[in-house]
Design a protein around this nucleic acid. Structure first.
Length: 223
DNA sequence: GCGACAG
DNA sequence: ATCTTGTCGC
């Protein structure tokens, strides 16, 4: 699928932060029109020496979780890992993989935060703006915000709060298993994000699209 | 200055 | 993210 170029990627931290501030105002929180049928998962991995980054996208049919299409890409790493600036390190490779997809998913789940970010522009939101499609951030740990421990049953969740605002939820995707951090990426509402993540989660803690993308990128990294 | 800090 | 095997438990 097509993506658009919103800015350069060869940036200093200061420039990257300024771009995040500018892009954050473009994020939209609109209700998802229809229940998504085709969903994609995205994930990255790095070579042992840390010089190469790999990204993979897996498109699945939500009705039966069958894989419709997959794509992988790799390139040289050119930005360090800095909390809050993750997208400048991983998004370029992700975009490469996304551009190889022939199908256009109704929604894309990204490994990381959406608006639950210091400047409301986590990697899920950033990628959402680049592809102009609904995106959801599903992270395995917290970046910012405070929260109470959700009930231990699958489906229970607690708000993730920052400055008196609900920026996401801490969601239990499996009974008695560590919860995940879900936040809106772009073009959807928190309620959409929660239901979609739960709908995509079956046997494991991580939603199926993301889990499959993780497996695939692990393969791509090997050879 | 100290502690926190997606992947 | 990455370095890494077996092992306890349902």
């Amino acid at each position: 699928m097509k993506t658009r170029k919103l800015h350069e990627w060869d940036l200093s931290c200061k420039e990257a932060i300024e771009i995040q501030r500018q892009l954050a105002s473009q994020v939209r929180f609109t209700a998802m029109k229809k229940r998504p049928k085709i969903i994609a998962g995205l994930d990255c991995a790095f070579s042992k020496n840390g010089e190469q980054i790999f990204a993979s996208a897996v498109v699945i049919d939500l009705s039966d979780f069958s894989i419709i299409e997959t794509a992988t890409a790799s390139r040289k790493v050119d930005f360090p890992y800095i909390p809050g600036l993750l997208s400048f390190r991983e998004a370029p490779a992700c975009i490469d993989a996304i551009e190889k997809l022939k199908n256009t998913p109704d929604c894309l789940i990204v490994d990381g935060q959406g608006i639950a970010h210091p400047r409301q522009l986590g990697i899920a939101s950033h990628i959402g703006l680049l592809i102009e499609k609904p995106t959801i951030g599903c992270a395995k740990s917290r970046l910012i915000g405070t929260f109470e421990e959700p009930g231990n049953k699958k489906g229970s969740y607690c708000p993730l709060v920052d400055s008196d605002e609900t920026i996401g939820v801490v969601l239990r995707t499996r009974t008695d298993v560590k919860p995940v951090f879900v936040s809106v990426g772009h073009k959807c509402m928190l309620e959409d994000a929660i239901s979609i993540i739960l709908e995509c989660t079956t046997k494991y803690r991580i939603p199926e699209p993301s889990r499959l993308a993780h497996q695939l990128v692990g393969q791509a990294k090997l050879g």
